[in-house]
Design a protein around this nucleic acid. Structure first.
Length: 564
RNA sequence: UGGGGUGUCGCCAAGUGGCAAGGCAGCGGUUUUUGGAGCCGCUAUUCGUUGGUUCGAAUCCAGCCACCCCAGCCA
């Protein structure tokens, strides 16, 4: 069963599958039915402290997808409560990546938009006697917090008067105290078995230039305080986050209830996405970039959104993949092969076929007249007839792939070897008569004959030529640089041991002098092609020699070289 | 070891008391001017485990086991 998505991409997911509801949708249905909410509003709330990756893509698809499905809205909120780690560079990349993936946020917000409001809500809490200024330093705080099995102890500052708390908090805001000297804490329960409820810090003093509010503030709200309140201020009904925040939910609810917020948003947690042979944590990805292990956040080997874009993965393929992995709460690691499947699935339909010889072996067709050339019509994409054909030129000297010739063929090899025939795609049958070697014994040229009666790749006598190969005409081709990308790590779980020790030394192999069919000389950067029998490639500008560069997006499945 | 979660095919994942969907991977076959794609099949008598309830349990109950998260003035 095949369904065509709006951008004309086939989605290899059964229709019935798409109609299946995940557990979050069951919750939503429940809340809509009970009239807890009458609309669906979600948000995607990244902290601008790094570039987005495939894990974020899953969250984006989920949040935007839910809003679309329930005819609600989804906003983008940059959760910028920690100036130390954040930067506009990240803000810009986040916006670009979401748009590239194909989603449009309803409104754009920043948590920093709410700093004044959040501050007032904190004062409210103080006035209710539910928050206090604490003078414990970080180390003391840790001691008072207790441990996993022992309860904590009340801070000696816990019973300050409301007036004193208000005065101290205002002076914290005014900049009268040094960084880290005091905090504002919610007054909940130091004996709670849930550590998050042991009088959590809601404001800290931290001088640092904020990328939007500059030096206006020297106190910043903590995530646990800012997040539920921001959600409520915006009217978010379903606040979807990852499972590690599950233990924070009681706190989330506590702030909404105690401050009697207008929207009692519902937090729902799902399991984050992991993919084998890859890293999916902003912190680790940043490390790879900072240590120069990769070329940057958009290195085509990284599963950042910008890396995948650079690699040539279509946004629609990423969306289809996210759709296919589903949403649940169990820890899981999805196979890289599943991601690659959706990339191929998309490109098989969308990418035009061309011929490119990566490891050229010269072939002279001895019975083809010198100086004669002829054109053949090559099908651009047999999956889409409307894409038509293009002319390709044939001549006496051509290049074929070195791996398409074997002096001593292994069994089941049905390409070229002495005395055997091979079909040149769209052209003729050729037969290998002789091969020439250099002093070292390497084959450097093939002497073949062609069968004039096999024009177009068919012969009326019906004789069987099983192998078909791609080729380019020596007089009508262009040289190019091909970058063969592969998985970055050799270990399924790259974090098992040192990252550096787990790197795949062949994650990037550069081929300098590939022979490409002439039509590839001037193609738009970002155009994607299928190099016949090899894989999908994306145009990535020209190199220092002026030769076009192509990045391998993903190889074709290969049942001959299976397992390699 | 306190609290919060999770365990269904190699990898994801439906399933909500009536007798194990689907996708990826794999394996056959068919077709093919890409060893691609397509098409047709096959692949869990069993749901972490042990007991219990029931005519009937992956689904309910109890115990046990395994794994993940929480002791940042990060998010």
């Amino acid at each position: 069963m095949e369904k065509i998505s709006p951008d004309n991409t086939p989605v290899a997911v059964a229709v019935a599958e798409q109609e299946k509801k995940n557990f979050i949708e069951h919750f939503i249905d429940e809340d809509l039915e009970s009239q807890r909410f009458d609309t669906v509003q979600t948000r995607f709330p990244p902290e601008p402290n790094g570039y987005l990756h495939l894990g974020h893509a899953k969250a984006i698809c989920l949040n935007f997808g839910l809003a679309e499905k329930y005819k609600g809205v989804c906003n983008l909120r940059l959760d910028d409560t920690n100036p130390e780690k954040e930067d506009v560079e990240y803000v810009d990349s986040i916006k670009e990546d979401i748009a590239w993936l194909g989603f449009k946020w309803n409104e754009l917000f920043y948590t920093s938009d709410y700093f004044p409001c959040l501050y007032n809500l904190a004062e409210e809490l103080i006035k209710m006697g539910k928050a206090f200024v604490c003078d414990l330093n970080a180390e003391e705080m840790r001691e008072y917090r207790g441990t996993l099995k022992e309860p904590g102890k009340d801070s000696p500052y816990r019973n300050r008067s409301i007036e004193e708390n208000l005065d101290l908090f205002r002076r914290m805001k005014a900049g009268e105290f040094p960084d880290g000297s005091r905090t504002l804490r919610a007054k909940i329960d130091m004996t709670s078995p849930n550590l998050n409820m042991r009088d959590p810090i809601i404001y800290r003093i931290q001088r640092g230039h904020h990328h939007r509010t500059g030096d206006t503030w020297c106190i910043y709200p903590m995530y646990d305080f800012a997040h539920p309140l921001s959600d409520s201020i915006e009217g978010v009904t379903f606040s979807i986050c990852t499972v590690e925040f599950e233990a924070h939910r009681p706190l989330y609810d506590w702030f909404l209830q105690n401050l009697n917020m207008p929207t009692q948003s519902r937090q729902i947690e799902f399991a984050r996405l992991n993919v084998n042979y890859a890293l999916m944590s902003k912190r680790k990805l940043k490390k790879m970039v900072d240590e120069g292990i990769v070329a940057g956040w958009d290195d085509p080997r990284m599963l950042t959104i910008s890396g995948m874009r650079h690699r040539g993965y279509p946004g629609a393929a990423i969306r289809a993949f996210c759709e296919s992995v589903g949403v649940a709460k169990a820890n899981s690691t999805v196979d890289m092969a599943q991601l690659e499947f959706f990339v191929r699935d998309n490109l098989n339909y969308n990418a035009q076929r061309v011929m490119a010889v990566l490891d050229p072996l010269k072939v002279t067709i001895t019975n083809y007249p010198q100086g004669k050339y002829e054109n053949f019509d090559a099908v651009n994409n047999q999956e889409r007839e409307e894409d038509g054909t293009r002319p390709i030129t044939f001549g006496r000297e051509i290049y074929i792939e070195r791996s398409d010739f074997m002096e001593n063929p292994v069994k089941k090899f049905h390409r070229l070897s002495p005395g055997r025939e091979l079909r040149l795609l769209h052209a003729y049958y050729i037969k290998c008569e002789e091969f020439i070697t250099d002093e070292a014994g390497n084959v450097i040229e093939l002497l073949c004959t062609y069968d004039p009666n096999s024009r177009g790749g068919w012969c009326e006598d019906g004789r069987k030529v099983k192998g078909t190969a791609h080729w380019v005409a020596a007089h009508d081709c262009v040289e190019g640089e091909i970058r063969l990308y592969d998985r970055l790590f050799i270990k399924e779980n790259p974090e098992d041991g040192e990252l550096r020790d787990n790197l795949n030394p062949e994650s990037l192999v550069i081929v300098k002098n590939a022979k490409l069919e002439k039509s590839l000389e001037t193609v738009e950067k970002g155009s994607r092609f299928q190099f016949l029998r090899q894989g999908y490639f994306v145009a990535d500008g020209v190199n220092e020699e002026g030769k076009p560069i192509f990045n391998r997006i993903v190889s074709l499945k290969d049942s001959f070289n299976k397992g390699k």
